[in-house]
């Protein structure tokens, strides 16, 4: 009993702790212009590579830009892109996954064959190749990520719909003449949405990692936009003399990804009935 209680308490604590970090990040996203001490893109070569001071709390980079301000504005880019990718992916996946799962038949067959081929590639590789072919940049990054990710989630959602579809209350709704779209919206969506939410939070950390990784390779968000992965790439050449330039953005990525992973894991455990 005590042990279970401890576990529960820890989970709640974990949820609060990770939730707090995520909340702080969102405050940074919303109030970046107010909170940042400087404009993140003002170049001032005279003050390049400065040590931390009152004026520049974390110092300046190789172009004399305020690192703290760039980190703060970086939350907007990293979180914004990741959320956008994930939300659009989920909407597409829910739509297609539900349609394929509920309707079955030829559409479902076609969908599964598309899955076979698209999932035959490592997803990170396919994203890399797509951006490479389309050309680097934020829009193409977004397109490539969505195009690669949707299959994966659509297939999971299709599976969820398939298992819900056979439940008795769905059959009852069918027998009583409820039209198909109504069954999907009223009886299937509410069941799968909590699972989709868990998926969302469990995987968004990975999406943030992928986006910053691609930006690090110079394929995603382009300089001079303040993005954490691109900042690490920028500081590569000063890495021996000024290692701190690389530490801050990396720590930001690590913190936010850990917060999301912890949040997602705890949420999954909390919603998983089998745990009890």
């Amino acid at each position: 009993m005590l042990r279970m209680l401890m576990v529960r308490l820890f989970q709640k604590k974990a949820l609060l702790f990770s939730g707090a970090i995520i909340l702080i990040m969102f405050v940074l996203v919303l109030f970046a212009p107010v909170l940042a001490p400087h404009d993140p893109n003002i170049i001032d070569i005279e003050h390049k590579l400065q040590a931390p001071s009152w004026d520049f709390p974390l110092g300046t980079d190789h172009l004399g830009r305020c690192i703290l301000s760039r980190l703060i504005f970086g939350t907007r880019v990293s979180l914004g892109t990741a959320f956008l990718v994930m939300v659009v992916t989920m909407i597409i996946s829910i739509f297609i996954g539900t349609y394929a799962g509920y309707k079955g038949g030829r559409i479902d067959y076609l969908f599964m064959r598309i899955c076979d081929v698209l999932l035959a590639f490592p997803s990170l590789f396919l994203a890399l190749a797509l951006i490479g072919i389309l050309g680097p940049g934020p829009l193409n990054l977004f397109l490539a990520m969505v195009l690669v990710q949707w299959v994966f989630y659509a297939r999971i959602i299709r599976g969820m719909v398939l298992s819900v579809k056979e439940q008795n209350y769905i059959l009852a709704a069918k027998v009583s003449g409820t039209p198909g779209p109504m069954i999907v919206i009223r009886h299937i969506f509410p069941v799968i949405l909590s699972q989709v939410a868990v998926l969302f939070f469990m995987d968004i950390g990975g999406i943030i990692l992928t986006i910053s990784g691609l930006s690090f390779l110079g394929l995603g968000i382009q300089p001079p936009t303040a993005e954490w992965g691109a900042m690490i790439n920028d500081s590569k050449q000063f890495f021996r003399s000024h290692p701190s330039l690389m530490m801050y953005p990396g720590l930001m990525i690590l913190t936010i990804v850990m917060a999301f992973n912890l949040f997602g894991d705890t949420l999954r455990d909390a919603l998983d009935v089998r745990q009890d």
């Binding site: 690090f216 992965g229 990396g250 990525i253 992973n261």
Partner: peptide, 13 residues
């Protein structure tokens, strides 16, 4: 937990 949240490129550096 830390390992799973670590950006590979940063870890390398």
């Amino acid at each position: 937990f830390v390992g799973a949240s670590m950006p590979t490129f940063w870890l390398g550096f």
